[in-house]
Design a protein around this nucleic acid. Structure first.
Lengths: 128, 128, 128, 128
DNA sequence: GTGGTCTAGACCACC
DNA sequence: GTGGTCTAGACCACT
């Protein structure tokens, strides 16, 4: 289910957070459904249980999942909504990155052309 | 000349690299021209000379500046070209970031609208 | 494992880079294997952790090792290949040095004789 | 007469020393002949007079030239001989460099092939 | 004056 | 535990 790159410079716990959100946004993990346990996930990802736990703690803090002592973690009803809202805030990251490229001589058109290359299949998956 | 945020989570040396490239791309620093000395820049930025030196070393390695022992660091003739080329490679970062947002339910149009907003700002700034 | 001359005019970090490559080329450090940690190596070499870290950063940049945050540095699969390729580029250094000696009156034969002397030593050492 | 690369990582004073020796070995500068003055050479090389003076001081120390106060610097009778002797000592540098390459997987034959590529014209020039 | 290297020791993020 | 960043201040080589 999860695709983690243990060698990436992106922290593993962050990759788990991103992947989990992607799975929820895509409808693979539905509200009320249980996430894999920390122990099983850490084993299948060859990651440290602490690392997985850290990711889940963060997702819980964001309200995307809720942790039930002794039972596991479950996707909240509001998960998709929260994820979309958080993502909207990240439009400023896109903005900042593009500003930088534009300052370096890349044109607006080149950037937009790159974005238009993105497979629209992804849009279908993400649709509410 | 430089605008550094000492409290940012972005490493200072990286900010110096980015800023320098921006100054070169904007034509503030021209080919053949000397950069501020490591010592003077470190003082004006309230940063450590080592931190500035690290940034300059990296810029030298990229071919954007050329270091001359005992004389200083100078913008290379190919600097602008190298900066643009490096930036083009980063279009994939934009793509990856946008894919992520799209997967979370943001539409391409929202992203492109955001970029169009930026662009008009950048055009004004680019007139310096 | 490492043999560093702290008094040499060759920078310590460069000696560490060279030594590490030598250890990999000789098969002492194998692909996938972990290098000594920055801290442990710096202690055993009586060098500063920063100096060792600088060497490892450079080796990572060259693709010879791969750094994993919180876990350590590991020899890459392509390490030997990269090392050999980099060394081939340095054949021009040999050429330049020899040209200089030839210009000063040393004959090619004297140089080649010197190299043949080395080679037999190296073959013995290479059996480790 | 001199060909100096002001941007090279090789110190300028060292380049001047090497070039001077090369000119003497090639017979362009003959024993008893005067070298260009520090002032004129520094101007033609766009180098600092101190830098040229440092090179000449070193050449004087080695016995390759002799400095006559108020008259200039002159090639000594023993110059060629001294240069050749010094160069012979540098065969160990070739040795060290080659050892390194061999340790990295380059073969003796590859190195010798590279050396044989060197234009033998250079040998004629260097001949006593 | 310039940049290059190194040390000592700190703090952070990640696993 | 690991590596990444930064500071403070030193010493050296080069111009």
């Amino acid at each position: 289910m999860y695709q983690i790159d243990l060698l990436s410079r992106v922290p593993i716990y962050e990759q788990i957070i991103t992947q989990t959100k992607k799975l929820i946004a895509a409808g693979v993990l539905k509200p009320g459904e249980a996430l894999p346990s920390v122990r099983s996930l850490s084993m299948s990802l060859h990651a440290n249980p602490n690392t997985v736990a850290r990711a889940f703690t963060e997702l819980d803090r964001e309200g995307v999942i809720c942790t039930v002592q002794g039972k596991g973690c479950f996707v909240t009803e509001a998960a998709k909504q929260i994820i979309k809202k958080k993502s909207k805030e990240r439009l400023s990251d896109v903005s900042a990155l593009c500003r930088e490229l534009i300052a370096a001589g890349i044109t607006k058109d080149e950037i937009i052309a790159e974005i238009n290359k993105i497979n629209t299949d992804a849009q279908k998956k993400g649709e509410n």
